[in-house]
């Protein structure tokens, strides 16, 4: 499966789950742009599973944002992202600018930073793993 096929397939899942046209879903479109709520993520993952036979979860996406940091390093005791966490986010989210943040960044807001690309990358990796296992 080519990268483009994955991009198209994932975008179709977003469009179907959200009741929007396919052209409203671009690689850099963020979850906040699409006004996604938590059940939408579950719905999108269900549709991705049906299309690609790849099971994903919000937890896996979240793990990508945390990178090598532990929960304690990424979040402070109030549940807000630490300075180390913000530096990590800049690594995985090229467009992320902590200066532009409105208010504090908590778990819920973190989720709105995801873009379609994150899901595409995750699916691509998982498909490659599956292919390797099959080979």
């Amino acid at each position: 499966m080519t990268r483009q096929e994955i991009v198209d397939g994932v975008a179709e899942c977003f469009a179907a789950a959200l009741g929007v046209d396919r052209d409203k879903v671009a690689l850099e479109t963020s979850f906040v742009d699409l006004d996604i709520e938590s059940i939408d993520v579950l719905d999108i993952n269900f549709r991705i599973d049906a299309k690609f036979r790849i099971t994903t979860s919000l937890r896996e996406l979240r793990a990508r944002l945390l990178g090598d940091l532990t929960e304690e390093e990424f979040f402070d005791e109030k549940g807000l992202v630490t300075d180390a966490g913000l530096r990590q986010l800049q690594k995985v989210l090229p467009d992320f600018d902590p200066e532009k943040l409105e208010g504090e960044l908590d778990e819920e807001k973190l989720f709105s930073l995801f873009t379609v690309r994150h899901l595409v990358d995750l699916i691509e990796e998982k498909l490659a793993q599956t292919a390797r296992r099959g080979a």
Binding site: I39, L42, D43, F46, D49, A50, T55, S57
Partner: peptide, 10 residues
């Protein structure tokens, strides 16, 4: 279960 539709329930 992870492969099932969460919206249908609602």
């Amino acid at each position: 279960p992870a492969a099932l539709d969460p919206v249908g329930f609602l």
